[in-house]
């Protein structure tokens, strides 16, 4: 592939790279220069108070939010800048939303196969086989013909994860995936995320699930005021944070 050669050997490149990312909404500068590399197979958790810019940063990573300046690269291939085929690049970046955003008029399988058929051009049978396989990975292949309204919130979010997984992305973005769920349904979604991570998926997760971050994350990033304040392995960030802002944020969670 020409793009691989041009990027100088994508094999060495991080799964996801963010360079000097800036974003303002009007006069409000939400991202003040974010630099971040997510290695292949790494699960990175992004923590921070609301308004810290973590969701905006995540949404810039597939250009649902258009960055003002800076670069985003997926396996060394540019997502930003002129001449980028955004729809093609987005297939390599799965996204899971806080409010699931399943298509209510399509069955679970229909949700998972829509892009397989219309974007990747699979035939119906091929797409359905791939869709069932993806639903199987989130433990819901028996709910393939159910509509979103017939599923619990946790099941809906798992279908949404399957929808993103089915495209076989290089990296998955999770935007507060459990924040809209009843507490008793959170565990199932986290279990699926742990499985997906265990299978080697690269994941960038914005979440308030501190306990899960401590258990499952490879790295934790603390953002505040549009910058990365502190990052490191979870035991370090949670156990011995060096920055006062991190300590103040974490103390509110631990009481």
């Amino acid at each position: 592939m020409a793009s691989v050669a041009a990027s100088g050997g994508a094999a060495d490149a991080a799964a996801l790279s963010v360079r000097a990312l800036h974003k303002s909404f009007g006069a409000d500068e939400v991202l003040k220069g974010i630099d971040l590399d997510v290695r292949r197979g790494e699960m990175v958790f992004v923590l921070g108070p609301s308004g810290s810019g973590k969701s905006t940063m995540l949404r810039c990573c597939n250009r649902l939010e258009e960055p003002d300046s800076g670069e985003v690269l997926v396996e060394g291939d540019r997502l930003t800048g002129p001449g980028v085929n955004l729809n093609r690049m987005r297939q390599r970046i799965g996204m899971v939303f806080q409010s699931f955003n399943l298509y209510p008029h399509l069955s679970a399988l229909g949700n998972v196969t829509l892009a397989l058929r219309r974007v990747q051009g699979m035939a119906k049978a091929e797409a359905e086989a791939a869709g069932i396989e993806a639903l199987n990975r989130v433990g819901l292949s028996d709910r393939a013909r159910h509509y979103p309204s017939q599923l619990s919130g946790g099941q809906q979010q798992r279908v949404a994860i399957a929808r993103a997984l089915a495209l076989k992305p290089s990296v998955m973005l999770f935007d507060e995936p459990t924040s809209a769920l009843d507490p008793e349904l959170v565990g199932d979604v986290l279990d699926v995320m742990r499985d997906v991570a265990g299978q080697g998926m690269t994941m960038l997760v914005v979440s308030h699930e501190m306990k899960f971050a401590r258990d499952a994350a490879d790295r934790v990033i603390f953002m505040d005021g549009g910058v990365i304040v502190e990052q490191g392995p979870p035991e370090q960030v949670f156990g011995a944070p060096t920055e006062a802002r991190t300590r103040a944020f974490l103390s509110r969670f631990h009481g």
């Binding site: 597939n62 649902l64 729809n87 093609r88 690049m89 987005r90 297939q91 970046i93 799965g94 996204m95 939303f97 409010s99 955003n101 399943l102 298509y103 829509l114 892009a115 219309r118 974007v119 949404a160 929808r163 993103a164 495209l167």
Partner: peptide, 17 residues
Amino acid sequence: PKGQWEAARSTGLTFTW
């Protein structure tokens, strides 16, 4: 809902699709 657009576009579907 705007989220329907975002979910579809995030999978690489074009605006028209």
